[in-house]
Write a protein that binds this DNA or RNA. Structure first.
Length: 331
DNA sequence: AACTTTAGCAACCGCAGGTGC
DNA sequence: CGCACCTGCGGTTGCTAAAGT
């Protein structure tokens, strides 16, 4: 196929669309895109250079006025998009690596189509790139495996995963793992408990709860990790339920969830942590044919169906500590 | 070789949330 | 409080190259 490292000269968007035409006469367009004389469509190398050098000199932001200040005949939106998705030095070009693919899968299972959030956890990748990769590769891959790419659940639970694939089917949800309902130390938590997201999913309605579960999981992690007394720890049912209403009894969950959720996500991209977690899981769940939470794609395993279980592991729990933890566990 | 279909992805659009007045 | 503006996000479009016929 085409070279994934597309230069601006290979950009394909045509120079007019159904809205926001060159004359700026379409009422539905935003002002910045409808101004007369603004260029649209593919960026030229010259424009790229002007934009990049200007931002290097003046910094990002003030996109609305940036084109004028930089001397570009583009709207601010277009400039921002070009910078964010292509010109930024931190943007990593090239194929998505298998471990990145696996991470995207796991994060999408947690977050849904929150591309910017997913991209924020994958260094060098943009939301647009991940979105495109998902739409062109991963969603099709999941469908071919009989998995709904939106819910990450089997498309038809009655049917087994197609066996035509050369890769093993995803592991079935294992027996429900303990939900954090008791007072546990971080040590105990990271050693002995894994939240079974699949089982949690089954307890929730489709839709509105779906993407709020991570916050509930993170809230549970927070409570356990911070040694909150037994009586103050709600069950996961409560956490999930109260993520969907504004019950002030659990407002503390909302307060902490962003940070903890962030930490929780960080834990997902901690390779070593996952290695340790794999080790632990293999001890606790020998019946799993394939480790579902591996962060690198094992040979012969395509990553589909990962994260049937997710580790409960705050990111501030250092790798060294965790390695030690694993060692202790084996003693 | 010519044509059609499919895959890949940059760029666009509309909307929503945040912020300042 | 309401409004306008700015920024960022997610969904979608549509062009080009590769693959297939």
């Amino acid at each position: 196929m085409r070279n994934p490292i597309a230069s601006s000269s290979t950009n394909k968007k045509k120079n007019s669309t159904t809205t926001g035409n060159e004359n700026g006469t379409t009422a539905t367009t935003t002002p910045c895109c409808s101004k007369v004389g603004l260029k649209r469509g593919p960026w030229t190398p010259e424009e790229d250079e002007v934009l990049a050098s200007f931002i290097r000199k003046e910094g990002e932001g003030r996109w609305r006025t940036l084109p004028k200040r930089a001397g570009l005949l583009r709207c601010g939106k277009s400039c921002r998009l070009r910078w964010m998705n292509y010109l930024r030095p931190s943007v990593k070009r090239g194929q998505i690596a298998p471990d990145e693919e696996d991470l995207i899968l796991r994060l999408h299972r947690l977050l849904g189509n929150r591309w910017s959030l997913i991209a924020g956890r994958i260094p060098g990748r943009t939301d647009n790139e991940i979105k495109n990769f998902w739409n062109t590769h991963l969603s099709k891959k999941l469908i071919s495996q009989g998995i709904d790419p939106r819910t990450h659940k089997p498309l038809n639970p009655e049917l087994s995963i197609p066996s035509s694939s050369t890769t093993p089917p995803p592991p079935p949800p294992s027996k429900p793992l303990p939900v954090i309902t008791n007072h546990q130390t971080l040590h105990e938590t990271t050693t002995h408990h894994h939240l079974n997201i699949a089982s949690v999913n089954q307890e929730c309605d489709e839709g509105q709860y779906q993407y709020q579960q991570p916050q509930a999981v993170a809230a549970a992690a927070y409570m356990v990790a911070n040694d909150i007394p037994d009586d103050d720890i709600p069950s996961m049912d409560h956490l999930l339920a109260n993520n969907n209403n504004n019950n002030q009894d659990y407002n503390d969950i909302n307060y902490c969830s962003d940070d903890i959720f962030s930490s929780f996500l960080n834990s997902l991209i901690n390779e070593d942590a996952f290695s340790a977690q794999r080790h632990l899981q293999s001890e606790h769940h020998d019946d799993l044919a394939q480790d579902p939470v591996t962060s690198s794609t094992p040979q012969g395993y395509n990553g589909i169906g990962v994260a049937w279980e997710l580790p409960l592991m705050p990111a501030n729990f250092s790798q060294n500590e965790h390695s030690h933890e694993v060692d202790d566990h084996h003693k």
